[in-house]
């Protein structure tokens, strides 16, 4: 069972996750407008910037985050921004979107000039997240857990970060048990996705480089 404190933590994190999203008009542009390669590049850049701003707003609402050392806050956000972005996009791709929308989004990404060797693992990741049929709580908590990774580069007070991450992990473990009682491996699978995310993050610098070149 979840304690009252744990329930409060979940609703707090889920509220923050739902409240801070990429502005709707920007998302609409992505789906509706015709685009050439240059416009596509600019729009995706704008989206990435907006994503980081939204991510920071979400993170500020994670209980305890603002009490961390300021430079550690920046190190955590810098280290996790790409992973949180992939998680958020995966959530979009696992939703049932109106007919054709997923294809438009996928086309846009495929025509952005990013090389195929990076695109394939990205869509594989989206697919593997989709298969887990995660609830909103799981998405929100997993994102918070990703951000609160004590082993990011330049984090000075790793113990302080661990103290924030551990209760989140415990809550997520319980949520998995409650939401997926017939899948005892569900929690382990979610954590496995975090490993996959690290690989995507690792290749991200190369992705950007290949994008710039093209």
């Amino acid at each position: 069972e979840l304690s009252q404190d744990q329930q409060a933590l979940i609703s707090y994190v889920v509220d923050a996750h739902n409240k801070h999203r990429i502005p709707q008009d920007m998302a609409r542009k992505l789906l509706q407008e015709q685009f050439n390669a240059e416009e596509n590049f600019l729009l995706l850049t704008e989206m990435a910037t907006s994503h980081v701003q939204v991510l920071v707003e979400f993170t500020k609402n994670i209980p305890g985050f603002q009490s961390l050392d300021h430079e550690d806050q920046i190190a955590l956000l810098k280290g996790s921004a790409v992973e949180a972005m992939f998680l958020r996009s995966a959530q979009v791709f696992s939703k049932k979107l109106p007919n054709g929308h997923t294809e438009v989004l996928e086309d846009r990404i495929r025509q952005s000039g990013i090389s195929e060797e990076f695109i394939t693992p990205m869509f594989n990741f989206y697919k593997s997240i989709g298969e887990l049929q995660m609830m909103q709580e799981e998405h929100a908590l997993l994102t918070a857990i990703t951000i609160l990774s004590p082993d990011r580069p330049y984090v000075k007070d790793q113990e302080a970060v661990e103290r924030l991450q551990e209760p989140m992990l415990e809550v997520l473990r319980k949520v998995c048990k409650l939401q997926h009682p017939h899948e005892p491996q569900h929690f382990a699978r979610l954590l496995g996705r975090l490993t996959e995310l690290r690989t995507l993050n690792h290749h991200h610098a190369e992705v950007l480089e290949s994008w710039r070149m093209s």
């Binding site: 850049t45 704008e46 910037t49 980081v52 701003q53 920071v56 300021h70 956000l77 810098k78 921004a81």
Partner: peptide, 21 residues
């Protein structure tokens, strides 16, 4: 333009509350 800002700049600005609503 935002595209010329680095990741860290965007994070620092947003943390300070300079985010445009």
């Amino acid at each position: 333009p935002a595209s010329n800002l680095g990741l860290e700049d965007i994070i620092r600005k947003a943390l300070m509350g300079n985010m445009e609503e």
